[in-house]
Design a protein around this nucleic acid. Structure first.
Lengths: 342, 342
DNA sequence: AAAAGTCCCGTGAACGTTAACAGCTTAGCA
DNA sequence: TGCTAAGCTGTTAACGTTCACGGGACTTTT
């Protein structure tokens, strides 16, 4: 008798049958089209409720040629910066009604898998927040992803025809190091992040800028490369003190590594800031609670994430409407927060 | 002449036409079906490459009645625990070939929006990692989400017919407090997380367990509620010292708040562990670098996330095959890591 | 030499929704 | 009275893929 299969989700046709109307009319009710009489609308809504009908976004995407999904390529959740970025992206995306398809990259080898997945899922735009620095990147993206969906890159080198939103890492680093110089420090070390990443490289350049502007030397023995983790900051300080024993201040490329530096200094009996000044980068909320409280560079990655979504949203809407858009690259300005460690 | 629209993605039919075969044959090549001659396979693959054809996962999902997507409901990226969980989930999901549709909940008011979105996107399973403690939860889920997709809950109270994977927070807290008691401390305070969350409540119960087992009192003045942030730990210690001045040790419900406690103690001139022992919960990598290094409870949320994906994968596969599955709730055992702060 | 099996390939329908169009009714107007 | 417009509803086709089925060519078996 009952031709509806058990355990089968109700479709728009089931609703139509129950309400005694056509599928098209149900569709009109679902999409708030005006051309439906109040009486029919109510009947349809009752049928929807009774059958617990839920629209199928996949079918809708297929016919509409618009999935309502944007892809996000992130580098993980471990560190403060990426996490803040994701938070901003997520917040703005749900506010504008976009769904997020999340992809985590750990190395350039993941690019192919990620691009394939995003294209298959018909994402309408991509926010690429894996800040790798590679010469092949541009060629690759143009071939693969770009023909299918617009991309906005975050925190990387701007190439031609690419839109990149970022924080001015170089400026931030310069501010940090200038501050150390103003406090009378002259022998300033650097614990950098992985130099394959644009942000790490920019922060290093900012450190060089400040030293050069003050006529101070910057040599390889003043630099150690970490991996953003506290533990690497800890090791970094030990190595740095061996390479560069006369150091009286250190600029650390993120707050988590700076925490390791504070720890190591404490262990070694070095007073901060008396014997060694320390400045970090990120201004995580925890940094105010370090012992001693950390001087650091503040940047608003939450805002950057939000902005990225708003921009991709603009591009996508314009595309749908067949209008041309221009969005341009942009850099947010960071600033220094002075606390006890300098 | 050329009937293919400009800017239009190639479809399986375009490939078929170019290769001189039917769409079905192209489909067979794409899905590695055996019944294709080597010669045809090559012709099709050449056509795919030439047209830069990419399969449309939405169309495939629609006909296959299987989206290959699982929904993840998270509480954000700010704190160590949730971030670890997400990392484990993401890693295992890509390993098993699942796509992730990410939803962030900040309050129970978000449930409706999130469930609607996940159902619309035809997720085949849901990992619910927003650890809220609410009596209405069960009723709600049975009505809404359960009929559409299996759910695994993480870190919450197990109800009937619900599968919950979690860490034994209560045990972890008991271990921490027993350790403090073994070190001779008798007046042990608690800085808890938001008590609307199951994990925070469990940790509080573990603290009570240990005190009760040792015949020690536990009163309201020994407790302060924080919000997981370092800053709230800082404030928490101040409040707690006012309410409970004779305190000689404190169990802090997560490491980030413990950082705030260490900071506040340092500011107040309290020696840790001499005047005040501190034990945290989480064992974030940074905790080993706190000043002093933090004694804390280690739990493996990465493994928990992986496990959750493996279990939902099992359930989904069984469902597809029409087989019954039983998965059962489970608790991972945490352990104590003793460092300098106790 | 017929029957059966294997290999390879194509046809038509279906998944759940919406776009485009057509058609019917009623109202308004000259 | 006839004409136009407005309001509401239904029909058909389409989105891009796969499933179920059928069938031809060739090989093997009896």
């Amino acid at each position: 008798m009952d031709s509806v299969k058990r355990n089968h989700r109700a479709t728009i046709r089931d609703v139509a049958r129950l309400a005694g109307v056509s599928a098209q009319t149900v569709s009109r009710v679902l999409n708030n089209h005006p051309d439906v009489s109040e009486q029919t609308r109510l009947r349809v809504q009752r049928a929807i409720a009774e059958l617990r009908y839920r629209p199928n976004a996949l079918a809708r995407s297929l016919i509409k040629q618009a999935s309502g999904v944007i892809g996000v390529v992130a580098s993980g959740f471990h560190f403060y910066g990426p996490a803040q970025l994701l938070t901003g992206i997520e917040r703005q995306a749900t506010e504008l009604g976009w769904q997020l398809m999340l992809q985590v990259a750990t190395a350039p080898e993941d690019y192919d898998r990620i691009a394939t997945a995003l294209i298959a899922q018909q994402v309408e735009g991509v926010i690429w927040a894996y800040p790798e620095l590679s010469s092949e990147r541009e060629r690759w993206f143009h071939q693969q992803l770009r023909p299918h969906a617009p991309i906005i890159f975050l925190s990387m080198e701007a190439g031609p025809d690419e839109v990149v939103l970022s924080v001015d890492n170089r400026l931030g680093a310069r501010l940090a190091v200038e501050h150390l110089i103003n406090r009378g420090r002259r022998r300033i070390g650097l614990i950098s992040g992985p130099l394959s990443l644009w942000s790490a490289q920019q922060r290093r350049l900012g450190w060089e800028d400040a030293l050069a502007a003050a006529g101070l030397p910057h040599t390889e023995r003043q630099v150690v490369q970490g991996d953003w983790s506290a533990e690497s900051g800890c090791r970094g300080l030990h190595t740095l003190l061996q390479q560069y024993p006369e150091m009286d201040a250190v600029f650390v490329s993120n707050d988590q590594m700076a925490l390791g530096v504070l720890h190591a200094a404490h262990r070694l009996g070095l007073g901060v800031p008396k014997d060694l000044s320390v400045v970090g980068f990120d201004d995580m909320p925890e940094s105010a609670c370090f012992v001693p409280a950390l001087t650091t560079v503040h940047h608003d990655l939450f805002a950057l994430g939000q902005l990225a979504v708003r921009e991709i949203d603009r591009v996508i809407r314009a595309r749908r409407a067949g209008q041309p858009v221009t969005i341009t690259s942009l850099m947010l300005q960071p600033y220094l927060v002075v606390r006890e460690s300098s």
